[in-house]
Write a protein that binds this DNA or RNA. Structure first.
Lengths: 115, 115
DNA sequence: TAAACCTTGACACTCTCGTGCTAAGGTTTG
DNA sequence: CAAACCTTAGCACGAGAGTGTCAAGGTTTA
């Protein structure tokens, strides 16, 4: 039996047993299982649970936020798409190039035609 | 008047006027304002709204996810903390070093004492 | 000036997240 | 074997995301 069971893990990490199961469902911290399917938390998992708790509290972020960050880490395409969108951000309505204005005019025309 | 008003922008982007206001509150796409505080969407904003819509639909992610990614982009410390936590992930209960086991034993003892 | 727009604020509803608790049934252990 | 645990499933509930709609009041425009 190498690992703490769910209630023991809960006591040493500050999470509730219920939440440990929930965290597992998010895929962020998954314990191993005994032959009879009991969750077994090893030292690595316990440490991750503690630091995860600090991370959430320290920056006031949600489990789903970390889960999303994890997904971005795994999914190369997603990360590329999101960062690409974000990088295009610092565009101000003041500085617009000719092509953008062209599309803009087209929009206005489409709108007029649609009306 | 250089920019489309909210209803016009809604028609050309596929978002509802209500959602355009909501998106603005998330800080992801903020239009300029006319003298009388009317929202004015320029070509850049319109394009961002369209691509944002594709991004959400294409990867089945939420506005709040992109908002979180944006926050990580801005907040250096947050990004460092989250990536640090995620990078420590590929640790399997099988491969654990001596120090981890030491902490593990300490956990067990704490637990016994606390009981 | 009257119709058509825009603004903010608020009520409301559906979904998901985060959490607790209970039930029915297997496992471990004193 | 009986007490103490563990498992999954499910009910419940507050909070926040996402979205519509309506109201009261200012702006633009035909």
């Amino acid at each position: 039996m190498d690992g703490l069971t769910i209630n023991e893990a809960a006591r040493t990490t500050g999470w509730s047993p219920r939440m440990l199961r929930y965290v597992e469902r998010t895929g962020l911290v998954s314990p191993g299982r005994s032959a009879s399917r009991y969750r077994l938390y090893g030292p690595a998992q316990l440490q991750r649970l503690r630091t995860l708790k600090e991370l959430l509290a320290g920056f006031d972020i949600a489990l789903s936020d970390v889960a999303f960050a994890a997904r971005m880490t795994r999914d190369e395409e997603l990360r590329a798409a999101v960062t690409a969108w974000l990088e295009a951000k610092p565009v101000r309505p003041e500085h617009v190039d000719a092509e953008d204005w062209l599309r803009f005019e087209q929009d206005k025309h489409e709108k007029l035609l649609a009306a």
